[in-house]
Design a protein around this nucleic acid. Structure first.
Lengths: 69, 69
DNA sequence: ATTTTATGTCAAGCTAACTTTACATGCTAC
DNA sequence: GTAGCATGTAAAGTTAGCTTGACATAAAAT
C-alpha cells in the first residue's frame, strides 16, 4: 500500500512533530508511515483523512489483491 | 467504532464462511469483527468496502476522538 | 434420530502497529 | 562554532489484528 502522508503534510506546512501531535501519535509513527514501513490502523487512517479533509481511499492507495494484516 | 458488517453480509445472503473466503480471512476474524471485538486492519477494511461496493466510511462508523491502535 | 449447516466460545500463538528512549545528520541561524 | 530545528535510524517493549484448532449449540434437512 502506498500513501500520500508526506506530500499532504508538506502541503499543509506541518512538521512531523506537529502532525504527530495533532493525530495524538508519536513522531516515530509518522516517520514509519511516511516511509511506508507499516500501515496505519483504520482509526489512525480515519483521523488522518479527517485532518486533511479527505476520504481514506484518496490518501491510501491500495494495490490489487493486497493481503490483510 | 461500530460497523455494519453483519447487516451487509446478511443483505447479500452470505454466510460467515462465505464472507471469510471472499475476503481471504478466517471465519474467526469475521465473527470477531461482527461482534466488534476489534477493528479490522485498513487493508481488510478496504477489501470489505470493495466487496460491498461502498466507501470505508460508510461501513465503519467512527466515534468522536477515537483513540488509535 | 442423526447428520449437516450456521453461528458461536475459548485458548494459544504469531506478526503488525504503536510507544519510548537514545543517538546521528544536515541545515540555518545567530 | 555551537545551538536549535527537522528529519532520520535503531532497539526493545506492549497491545491489537489475525490464525488455527477444538469444542458447543440450535435449527434445518434428510
Amino acid at each position: 500500500m502506498q500513501n500520500r502522508i508526506k506530500e499532504l503534510r508538506q502541503k499543509h506546512n506541518f512538521t512531523q512533530d506537529e502532525l504527530a501531535d495533532r493525530l495524538e501519535v508519536s513522531r516515530q509513527t509518522i516517520i514509519s508511515l511516511e516511509k511506508e514501513r507499516y500501515n496505519p490502523s483504520i482509526v489512525l487512517a480515519y483521523n488522518i483523512a479527517k485532518l486533511f479533509d479527505m476520504k481514506i481511499e484518496d490518501i491510501f492507495i491500495f494495490e490489487e489483491g493486497e493481503q490483510n494484516g
